[in-house]
Simulated scan of single mutants.
Amino acid sequence: MKSIKAWIQAFRLRTLPLAFSCIFMGAFTAGIDGYFDGVILTWGLITTLFLQILSNLANDYGDASSGVDGEHRTGPKRTVSSGLITKEQMKKALYVFSFLSLASGIYLIWLSFGDQWSKVLVFLVLGLGAIAAAIKYTVGKRPYGYVGLGDFFVLIFFGLVGVGGNYFLYANSLDPMVVLPALSCGFLAVGVLNVNNIRDIESDKASGKSSIPVRIGRQKAILYHWFLIIGSVATMLAYCVIKDLSPGAYLFLLVSPMLFFNARAVKIKTTSEGLDPYLKQLALTTLLFVLLFGLGELLF
């Protein structure tokens, strides 16, 4: 029983709403343009589930191996560093979820493109890139998450690729306007990472991890957070106006107060324990933001 609880802890299921947000946004934007397939949505969610768990396990393993998750860490302890799961066990799990992500992704690509081999090849490369990005965030000789590049890769894979790529799976083409909701999702995903990095700013400094808040300081990181929150709402509004969507699409604005509440909390909460709940709050708010937009447009 302890082993099962340890693996569930390592999976960090609270991160899944954020990961699923870009999948739903891709499906909704495709549906607005007349493209949708429930089977593709289902396998998109399954593939994302495997990729997100892979990323979380790699983060657990990488932080323990590098010493970031050591005595100075102020955030929640990971399973490898706390001894709940051994490094060898975690390494095997990384192989398992890499295989599951690849197999699921290949099936998803085949469902969408069949024998259109040029598109299959492009998306296979993107899929391999997503797997590599999930692992290299904290694993390897020069993990990009430790040198302040995590925000960039999150914007790409949780935003532009996550939304735009999923739209393409449905439509087999790409509406340039989709970049706006893609940026909206990406900004909120980066916001979750920014809350995490502000929470851990002191322990990251002590361990040599150069996140964006470590590089620019807490006060500028708070301004950066406001930029991400406002940017997410502004880009979504721009998409709705340019596409001349129905009033129902604007239902996402109902959660705007929750986004600004998050930004205010990041400013006034100065302890790790005080900030930690706002990671989950922003992740769940992001999913609600997306669901209200899509369901409001498609149902009303």
Results as ranks from 00 to 15, higher is better:
N197A: 00
Y144R: 11
Q116H: 09
G129L: 15
I109A: 13
K141M: 13
W7I: 05
L111Y: 06
Y144M: 11
A19M: 06
L188E: 01
V266Q: 10
A283Q: 05
E202M: 08
T285R: 01
I230L: 10
Y224M: 03
G34M: 07
P76D: 07
A132S: 11
G83E: 10
I23N: 07
Q281S: 12
F261K: 15
T48Y: 09
K5E: 03
G38M: 08
G296C: 09
D69Y: 05
G165D: 02
V233Y: 08
F99S: 14
G165W: 10
M258F: 13
G191W: 01
C185Q: 00
S55Y: 00
D244S: 13
G140L: 14
F50D: 02
L45I: 15
G145M: 06
T286C: 10
Q116C: 03
L299T: 04
N172R: 13
A249F: 09
K119A: 12
L245M: 02
D175W: 04
I222D: 02
Y146F: 14
L155C: 03
I131K: 12
S81P: 11
K119L: 14
G191L: 00
Q116T: 05
Y239I: 11
R14Q: 06
I23A: 12
G186Y: 01
A263D: 01
W43I: 06
S184K: 03
T138S: 15
P176L: 12
G217W: 13
V255K: 01
F97Y: 14
M1A: 00
G148S: 10
F20V: 08
K119M: 15
F168C: 04
L108T: 15
I4C: 00
L155M: 14
K205I: 15
W110V: 15
